[in-house]
Write a protein that binds this DNA or RNA. Structure first.
Lengths: 152, 152
DNA sequence: TATTGTTATACTCTATAACTATA
DNA sequence: TATAGTTATAGAGTATAACAATA
């Protein structure tokens, strides 16, 4: 292998190029199928992302939510207004700094996140159960590596 | 393993449940990072998806594009209008059925798809090059399995 | 005076309903 | 009469600029 590389410096990059394309396409395709599984069909991805952030990272101020989801504060304000009207989260003024609002999930909001998560995992579990034990091992190892790649 | 299953029928499903969650989160996270790499920052995901469909599956009628992207015909019409005005695709009336329009990429449209693809793969290649050969093998095998799961 | 959130306004993308042209 | 596409119109999500409340 090292020898091959010295004779042809592009051998490794070429292999990685093809592998990257395959992984990119497979990732997009699987993400698309998973995203289609949701508890509330009428909710946008942006709205669901807010509920999921609150579920996994606890209460946020408006500014924190906007930064996490990479939208402007007015835009996040509108999304939060919709979710508040629908009873999926609550706004309360912060006691220590009364400029801030603390945004937290209601039980209903939490239930929506958990039900969507459950449906996505159920769909995927069903698919995994049709694979061989060896194939599942590969995917288990791959998941850890993919997270490392995505979070770097 | 079989013995274990017979003594405890939930052993396999529990393993798959955790594995499914890990794979779901890793897939979403990697897809998000990949999607952020694009050639034209002002183009929406919906617009890019149309160009990519034309690039990979050739010319489409308006109805075919709408069905493939799961939007309504008026909605697709508007997206196609924008892309046509920007010179990224062409509309031509079908010779055999003059109700239909054939929509095809221009050279500029094709270049945008290819440049975005190139950027995403370059980002991913860079990440893969930091992994061990064994880790890349796992991802290569996983990509094939993920496609099988997504396409079933 | 700076920071946090909100309101005003406008543009894009989505939808449904109505319309035009062609088969 | 049915089908393919388009136009009319409205609702949701995004943005920037201006404003209000608090630190």
């Amino acid at each position: 292998m090292l020898n091959n590389l010295m004779q042809n410096p592009s051998a490794l990059p070429q292999t990685i190029t093809g592998e990257a394309s395959e992984l990119r396409m497979a990732t997009f395709r699987l993400a698309r199928r998973l995203r289609a599984q949701r508890a509330v069909d009428t909710m946008s991805d942006g709205q669901f992302a807010v509920l999921a952030a609150l579920r996994h990272h606890g209460p946020h101020t408006l500014g924190e939510l906007a930064e996490r989801e990479r939208v402007t504060a007015p835009s996040m304000n509108r999304t939060v207004n919709c979710l508040e009207e629908e009873g999926r989260l609550t706004r309360t003024v912060d006691d220590k700094d009364r400029r801030k609002v603390n945004i937290a999930l209601t039980d209903e909001g939490r239930a929506i996140v958990e039900e969507t998560t459950r449906r996505r995992d159920a769909w995927l579990e069903d698919a995994l159960s049709a694979l061989t034990a060896k194939e599942r091992d590969v995917l288990r190892d791959a998941a850890a590596i993919m997270r490392k790649v995505a979070d770097r």
